[in-house]
């Protein structure tokens, strides 16, 4: 693979540093522009195994609202996001729900859990 320099924006935190990334396919050679060490880790992973936090909703029965928001507890493999969304679409849970309650364990065998992002009281509670 030839050596190339790409511009990437670090998404680790809201600062959003613009990084000049020199790499050789999946091999990282040099990073410039990161203002903290997390930028380096981000680029390394982005080149080999890009991941994202995934937030969506699942249906809830008997809750104050018909849906409860859920989120992966850690970044999830980017190429499999739509597969994960498909799996979550089949899930319906019962109110009351507690924050951090596991909604889908070990999602698609990735070892990443999906948990409720808030409490969801039942209707009338």
């Amino acid at each position: 693979m030839p050596e190339t320099t790409d511009e990437m924006i670090c998404i680790t935190c809201p600062v959003g540093c613009t990084l000049q990334v020199t790499h050789n396919g999946e091999t990282l050679l040099h990073v410039d522009g990161n203002t903290c060490s997390r930028g380096l880790g981000y680029v390394e992973r982005e080149l080999t195994d890009p991941r994202r936090m995934v937030a969506t909703t699942v249906r809830v029965r008997g809750g104050l609202h018909p849906l409860v928001p859920v989120c992966t507890v850690e970044p999830f493999p980017k190429p499999r996001i739509f597969e994960l969304l498909g799996a979550l679409r089949h899930i319906e849970i019962e109110a009351p729900v507690k924050m951090n309650q596991v909604v889908l364990e070990d999602a698609l065998g990735t070892g990443v859990d999906v948990v409720a992002s808030r409490d969801m009281p039942g209707t009338g509670s």
Binding site: C13, P14, M53, A55, T56, P69, C71, S117, R118
Partner: peptide, 22 residues
Amino acid sequence: CIHNGFGVEIFGEDLPGPSYAQ
């Protein structure tokens, strides 16, 4: 705001909006 990205400054954690509020 069910997406994550909240709380990095205050909690040093990356939380979804509803968790931050909770």
